[in-house]
């Protein structure tokens, strides 16, 4: 199976699933009093990126997934601040890549529970905190509004505060993910190409239709 094509299909598949979850689950959570952003980052975003890093072991994939999920969120016709969310999602993908860039730091080789929880907390906290601040700076630039750095700096305590829950959730997500059977990821990624590509394409298209209809 062509490795690049296999990877691109994976990016499209999991980026589309992430985008659909952001639009459906994210919007549903936003309409409640639950902390939607922290839940979506710590559970869904980080969970999908960590799972795909274990499955595909390919740095750079999560950057593509974040960019696609962000683009799908931006195209979603209803919901909250699409532009802010889209920027935050794309930035979260980039932050994940930076944190896990070292080839020696492999998610599936975190052997102790303290390392699994610790790296989950660091990842979730940093992804949310940096994503929050980045969207505060980039949204005015993209939307043509005023960028007042004093306003952005004043939001730092909120970013640090809200990131705590995202960190805790990611700290729980990573050990839970690694508790799954070790061969599960290989069974998914080693599916025959006659099955892999049609299923990946069909699920991706269904996700896009879902995003447009929701």
């Amino acid at each position: 199976m062509n490795k690049n094509l296999h990877l691109i299909a994976g990016i499209v598949l999991f980026g589309s699933i992430w985008g659909l979850l952001e639009c459906a689950l994210g919007d549903a959570l936003h309409s409640t009093s639950l902390p939607a952003g922290s839940i979506m980052t710590g559970l869904v975003g980080f969970g999908l990126m960590a799972a795909t890093r274990v499955m595909y072991r390919q740095p750079g994939m999560q950057l593509g997934m974040g960019a696609l999920a962000g683009a799908l969120k931006y195209m979603h016709p209803v919901g909250g601040c699409m532009l802010c969310s889209a920027i935050a999602i794309a930035v979260e993908g980039a932050i994940f890549e930076i944190i896990w860039r070292s080839p020696r730091l492999r998610i599936d080789r975190l052997d102790s529970m303290s390392m699994r929880i610790g790296m989950g907390v660091i990842s979730g906290y940093t992804m949310y905190g940096v994503g929050y601040m980045a969207t505060q700076m980039l949204t005015p630039v993209v939307a043509g509004g005023p960028l007042i750095l004093a306003d952005v700096a004043a939001l730092l305590p909120r970013a640090l505060s809200h990131a705590t829950l995202a960190g805790l959730l990611a700290g729980a997500t990573l050990p839970a993910l690694l508790a799954l059977p070790a061969n599960l990821s290989e069974r998914i990624t080693s599916v025959r190409k006659e099955v892999y590509y049609p299923v990946a394409s069909a699920v991706s298209v269904l996700c896009w239709i879902g995003i447009l209809l929701l």
């Binding site: 303290s114 390392m115 929880i117 790296m119 305590p157 640090l160 505060s161 705590t164 960190g167």
Partner: peptide, 21 residues
């Protein structure tokens, strides 16, 4: 292995202090 849990704990403490503020 020693420093990762310490960094994580530090971030959670920072977040807790920010939440109180």
């Amino acid at each position: 292995r020693r420093i990762i849990p310490l960094i994580a704990a530090g971030l959670l403490l920072l977040g807790t202090a920010a939440t109180i503020y």
